[in-house]
């Protein structure tokens, strides 16, 4: 067994086990963490397939950002598992049917009939200086530039829509807002006034004391 094969089987085993754990474990936070492990091992498999850009971006985007936000939400939700599990047996037959149908479809498309070294030639090993990043970047910014920009605009629309849906400006006075720009621009003279006053002369007090002694 070569070293690449050894690493491949380790990563593949981790990916499969963590995928299974993700759908079977009860606690949603743990399920999300298993999914993170599945992502990381899949990224490792992609890097082994000499697609290091895809593998690293998978970690950067999905593990580093998307799953963190997902965990965020899952952690703060108070999920009652017993309510979610209501009607499990009632829907089990339909669910099982759907699962079998999907499995059959996947099997027909990517089953062993279509794969194997006799059907598909082994991919070429790339030379040492091969850069997956450059290989992806050149068609992305030349041939597919239009689709690429379109996808970016779609994402921007998504962001604007999400912000527009959740933005809630209540009238000033109903609720107190902190305007940080205003706070930062505050100078000492806006808050603090120097007042010039004449010194208080305490002559009279001494005379009174002398009168008291008499």
């Amino acid at each position: 067994m070569s070293f690449e094969q050894f690493i491949f089987y380790v990563l593949a085993a981790i990916a499969i086990i963590s995928g299974l754990m993700m759908i079977t474990v009860k606690n949603p936070v743990k399920a999300a963490l298993w999914l993170v492990l599945a992502f990381i091992s899949t990224a490792g498999l992609w890097i082994m397939a000499q697609a290091e850009f895809l593998g690293l971006v998978l970690i950067l985007v999905y593990v580093g950002a998307v799953m963190v936000l997902f965990l965020f939400v899952v952690m703060m939700l108070d999920i009652n598992m017993s309510i979610l599990k209501e009607g499990f047996t009632r829907y089990l037959p339909i669910g099982a049917l759907a699962a079998v149908a999907i499995f059959a479809l996947i099997y027909m498309v990517v089953g062993p009939d279509h794969f194997g070294l006799d059907k598909v030639a082994a991919p070429d090993m790339k030379p040492a200086g091969y850069s997956n990043t450059t290989e992806i970047a050149i068609p992305l910014y030349t041939e597919h530039a239009y689709a690429f920009i379109l996808a970016a605009v779609l994402l921007l629309v998504g962001i604007v829509a999400a912000i527009a849906l959740t933005l809630r400006r209540r009238p000033t006075g109903a609720v107190l807002y902190q305007d940080i720009d205003k706070q930062n621009k505050t100078l000492a003279k806006d808050r603090f006034e120097m007042v010039k006053m004449d010194a208080v002369v305490e002559k009279a007090v001494v005379e009174n004391e002398e009168e008291d002694k008499k």
Binding site: I40, E52, F53, L56, I59, L60, V63, G64, S131, N132
Partner: peptide
């Protein structure tokens, strides 16, 4: 080749 990307990806974990 993707050294910078690797550091970014790893530190995001």
């Amino acid at each position: 080749n993707a050294g910078v990307l690797y550091v970014l990806a790893v530190s995001s974990i």
